[in-house]
Nucleic acid binder design. Structure first.
Length: 539
DNA sequence: GTAGGGTTAG
C-alpha cells in the first residue's frame, strides 16, 4: 500500500519489542522502506543487519527494482558477491530486471550465463525475465532463440515477447504472435489485451482499437486498470479524446497513471490548457503526482508560456523531493528557457547534481533560442573540459547559437572539430545550419563549397538556407540555382516561388517577379498568409 | 522475510 507512516509504526514497534535484529522481521521492513522510496533509510537498516542471507538480499534488491532504482541494484549486487553469497532464482530475476532497465548488457549476459551453469534456466519466471531483458536490449535474436527452445511457455511468456515487439515499434510481428498464441489454444489475459491495444495506438488505427475495445468488454477485461489505461491512451493517441475522457470519468479508482495518461492525451491533442487544469484537479483530488506527471506537465507550461504556473510547479517539485531527478532538472531548464527566463534556466542547470548530455544540450539550445552565441560557446567549451559526452544534438545546438548570433569564425571551427576531434558525422541539419550561417555572412563561395563537399544529396533544408541568404543579398544567380533544386525536391511548396519573386523584385526585375508569382498560381499553389501572433491553444 | 509480463514520460 506504500503507506510509509504505517510502516514506520511497525518498525518502531519491532524496535520496542527488541526483535528488529531477527532477520525475518527486519527483511520486510527493509522492503517497505525501499518500496516507499526511502532509499537511504532502507540501505542504512539493511547494512546494519547481522547475518544477511540470500533471502534478505533478494528482498532488498527486488524492492529496489520495483521502486525504480535499477542502478543501485547493479552496484549492490557486486557487494553481495563480495560477501560470498550465491544468487538464487529470486536474486537473478531482480538483477536481470535491473539490467534490462539500464541497458546493462555485460551484467545481464553474465547473469544469463550463471543461470545456465546453475541450472536455473528451466524456471519459467527466470526465462520470461530473460526474454524481457533481451527485448529491452533490442536483441530479438536472443529473445526468439530462448522463446523457441522453451517448452513450458505460459501466457505471460507470450505477452512478454509480444510486448517486446510493440516497444520495438513492430506491431505487425506483435499481431502475428497473437495469431500464433490463439492457434496454440492459450487463453489470453488482461496483459495480452494491454499489448494489443498499444499496438493499435502504434498503428494509429482507431477502428482496430475500437474493435479490440468491443472484445475487451465482452471478455470482462475492461475492469482491469491496466487495460483501461491502455484504452484511454489509445483513444487519445488516435485522436478520439472524447472517448478517452468518457473512460476516464467513468473510472472510480483513478491512480496516478490514469491521470498522467489524460494529461499526456490533452497535450498530444494540442490542448495544453486542459493538460494543466487536469493536473491541478489531480492535486485537488489528493492523487500524488509522480515523476512522469512532472515530466509531462513541464512541456505543457512551455507551450503556454505560463511562467507563473511553471514556477508553482517548480516549487511543488522541490516539496515532493523530485528535484534531484535529472529528467526533471532537464525539463525545468527547458521550461524556463522557453518561457523567456534564461537566468532561471541557468540556475537550474548549475544546481543540478547529475547532469547528463541532455542537460547540457538543453542549456545550449536555450542560449541558441535567446541569441546568446557567446554563452553557448563558453558552455560548449565547459562541456569539453568536464568530459561530458558531446553528441550530434550538442553540435546542432551550439552551431545554431552561432547562426543566431552571426559568429562565423567560431561556428566554422566548431563545425571542423566535429569530425576531427569528436568523431561525430555531420548530418543534414548541421550542413543546413552552416550554410545558413555562411550565407547570412555573405560568404557564398564557402557556402556553395560546403554544399558540394557534402557526402549525401543536399535536402530542401540546405537549399532553403541558401535561398534565404540569397534573398538578403539579392544574389539572383545562386538564388535561381537553389530554387531549381527546391522545385525538384518540393514542387508543392509555394514558399519557394514567393522567395524567388522577392529576389527578382529587389533587383527591379518586375516582369520576372510577376512571372514567379503566376507560375505558382498556374500550379494551383497558394501560400497561407503569415501571422505574427500565435494562439497558445493552437500551437 | 524475497519472485516473471502488460499502462504514462524520456
Amino acid at each position: 500500500m506504500r503507506d510509509l507512516d504505517k510502516g514506520k509504526e511497525v518498525h518502531s514497534y519491532a524496535l520496542q519489542q527488541g526483535i528488529i535484529s531477527d532477520i525475518v522481521v527486519a527483511t520486510p521492513i527493509v522492503s517497505m522502506y525501499a518500496k516507499c522510496g526511502e532509499l537511504k533509510k532502507a540501505k542504512e537498516l539493511f547494512l546494519s543487519l547481522q547475518g544477511r542471507d540470500i533471502v534478505a538480499w533478494s528482498a532488498f534488491l527486488s524492492s529496489l527494482v520495483q521502486a525504480g532504482y535499477p542502478r543501485e541494484v547493479c552496484s549492490l549486487f557486486r557487494e553481495m558477491q563480495h560477501e560470498g553469497l550465491r544468487p538464487d532464482e529470486v536474486t537473478l530475476i531482480s538483477v536481470l530486471s535491473a539490467c534490462a532497465e539500464v541497458s546493462c548488457h555485460r551484467l545481464g549476459k553474465s547473469m544469463h550465463c550463471y543461470a545456465l551453469k546453475a541450472d536455473l534456466e528451466s524456471n519459467i519466471s527466470t526465462v520470461t525475465t530473460l526474454i524481457s531483458m533481451y527485448t529491452k536490449f533490442k536483441l530479438f535474436i536472443h529473445a526468439m532463440t530462448l522463446f523457441n527452445k522453451t517448452h513450458c511457455k505460459d501466457v505471460v511468456t507470450w505477452n512478454t515477447l509480444i510486448n517486446g515487439f510493440i516497444r520495438f515499434g513492430d506491431p505487425i510481428h506483435a499481431f502475428e504472435m497473437l495469431q500464433r498464441l490463439k492457434l496454440m489454444g492459450i487463453r489470453q489475459d488482461a496483459g495480452t489485451m494491454v499489448s494489443m491495444v498499444s499496438a493499435c495506438s502504434l498503428l494509429d488505427n482507431l477502428k482496430l482499437g475500437i474493435s479490440f475495445h468491443g472484445q475487451i468488454k465482452k471478455s470482462g477485461f475492461e475492469s482491469d486498470i491496466h487495460v483501461k489505461v491502455a484504452l484511454m491512451d489509445m483513444y487519445a493517441k488516435c485522436g478520439s479524446l472524447k472517448s478517452a475522457e468518457t473512460l476516464f470519468y467513468t473510472t472510480s479508482m483513478k491512480d496516478e497513471v490514469s491521470w498522467n495518461v489524460m494529461i499526456t492525451g490533452y497535450l498530444q491533442n494540442r490542448r495544453a490548457n486542459e493538460a494543466i487544469s487536469t493536473f491541478n484537479r489531480m492535486k485537488f483530488e489528493n492523487v500524488r503526482p509522480n515523476l512522469v506527471t512532472f515530466v509531462t506537465i513541464l512541456p505543457a507550461v512551455s507551450c503556454l508560456l505560463a511562467l507563473r504556473e511553471g514556477m508553482a510547479i517548480h516549487s511543488c517539485i522541490i516539496q515532493m523531493g523530485f528535484i534531484t531527478s535529472t529528467l526533471i532538472g532537464n525539463g525545468l531548464i527547458d521550461m524556463y528557457a522557453k518561457c523567456g527566463q534564461l537566468s532561471y534556466a541557468e540556475k537550474c542547470f548549475h544546481e543540478m547534481e547529475n547532469k547528463d548530455t541532455i542537460s547540457w544540450n538543453t542549456m545550449l539550445s536555450g542560449y541558441a533560442m535567446h541569441g546568446q552565441g557567446d554563452s553557448a560557446i563558453a558552455l560548449f567549451s565547459l562541456m569539453e573540459e568536464f568530459d561530458a559526452k558531446i553528441d550530434s544534438v550538442s553540435f546542432l545546438s551550439v552551431l545554431s547559437a552561432c547562426r543566431h548570433t552571426g559568429l562565423v569564425q567560431e561556428g566554422r571551427s566548431i563545425f571542423e572539430s566535429m569530425c576531427e576531434k569528436h568523431h561525430v558525422e555531420p548530418n543534414m541539419e548541421h550542413y543546413a545550419c552552416m550554410v545558413d550561417l555562411l550565407g547570412h555572412a555573405g560568404l557564398f563561395d564557402e557556402a556553395l563549397g560546403l554544399i558540394n563537399k557534402m557526402p549525401a544529396e543536399p535536402n530542401a533544408e540546405v537549399w532553403g538556407a541558401l535561398l534565404g541568404a540569397c534573398k538578403i543579398y539579392s544574389n539572383l544567380k545562386l538564388g535561381e540555382l537553389a530554387l531549381n533544386h527546391l522545385l525538384k525536391l518540393e514542387p508543392e511548396n509555394p514558399v519557394h516561388h514567393v522567395v524567388l519573386s522577392d529576389i527578382y523584385a529587389q533587383c527591379g526585375r518586375w516582369n520576372e517577379a510577376g512571372r514567379a508569382r503566376s507560375n505558382m498560381k498556374d500550379h494551383g499553389l497558394k501560400k497561407c498568409p503569415g501571422r505574427s501572433w500565435v494562439d497558445a491553444d493552437h500551437r
